[in-house]
């Protein structure tokens, strides 16, 4: 019985090795996966940076407008009009980029706005970054609003101006509060980049698809791609978890 099981296991392993060899090693087909993995990382990391920068700017404009509009309306200075216009622009941006599918946005960026682009990766970074920025902005704004107003007043009463109060007092606390939600957004972003293949980019998903198309063997490349995504998400989650624990030090 045990011997039979051993033989069966051996033949399974041999079949697996043969299939693996055929799918990934022959013709150096694993290179597709390497290249796709690289592109997925590039797009995700680039979009992350673009998204955070846009997110901080939009959240800062929106929340400072909300907090200061009463004071600014009294003096009706230049800053009042600048902020009113900037706030309106931010709102339009949020509406458009949260209101339409990312695939459609990507197609519009690639085929209409950057129709002359030779390389799709920078366009994808731009498109995913702008899209992610809309979500990150609202996450940050929610974080800023969740900080007790007394913290803001304490900062101002010590003599910090608005931006210093934000930088030294509110943002560090906000960051801690939004970290889990932000991590969620990054995971979503990583997985969303799997539609990059729509505009001819060889990302991880597309790479799996290419191999499957050449070998007519679907399960191995696609399962491999799924496992790679999963491992990336697990690594990301554990890194954020570590950061979170470090930031929670003050709550013993």
């Amino acid at each position: 019985m045990i011997k039979q099981f051993g033989i069966w296991l051996g033949s399974m392993w041999a079949a697996f090795a043969k299939e693996f060899n055929f799918v990934f090693i022959e013709d150096n087909r694993y290179q597709h996966i390497v290249k796709g993995f690289g592109n997925t990382l590039k797009i995700t990391a680039g979009a992350l940076v673009v998204g955070i920068i846009i997110g901080i700017i939009v959240a800062a404009i929106r929340s400072s407008y909300d907090k200061n509009k009463e004071a600014m309306a009294m003096h009706k200075g230049l800053s009042y009009y600048v902020f009113t216009v900037a706030n309106a622009i931010c709102k339009v941006y949020l509406t458009i980029f949260r209101g339409t599918p990312i695939v459609v946005q990507l197609l519009i960026f690639y085929f209409i706005i950057f129709a002359n682009a030779k390389n799709g990766v920078p366009v994808a970074i731009f498109a995913f970054g702008i899209n992610s920025g809309a979500y990150v902005a609202e996450i940050f704004r929610g974080g800023i609003m969740s900080i007790d107003g007394g913290q803001f007043e304490a900062g101002r009463s010590l003599g910090f101006n608005y931006l210093q109060t934000m930088r030294y007092i509110i943002i560090p606390q906000m960051f801690k509060a939004v970290l889990p939600t932000l991590c969620n957004e990054f995971i979503a972003l990583l997985k969303e980049t799997s539609v990059a293949g729509y505009v001819g980019i060889i990302d991880l998903t597309k790479a799996g698809n290419v191999i499957a198309g050449r070998t007519f063997s679907y399960y191995m490349p696609l399962i491999a791609v799924a496992i790679i995504y999963l491992v990336m998400v697990l690594i990301l989650t554990s890194l954020v978890g570590k950061l979170e624990r470090r930031l929670r030090k003050s709550e013993r």
């Binding site: 007394g150 913290q151 007043e153 304490a154 101002r156 009463s157 010590l158 101006n161 930031l247």
Partner: peptide, 25 residues
Amino acid sequence: PKANINKHRQKMGMVFQHFNLFPNM
């Protein structure tokens, strides 16, 4: 309108009902 209120607030200490200490520091 032109007064730099941040400068003046430095000379006016304020203590709040709910302390408002910075919890992360």
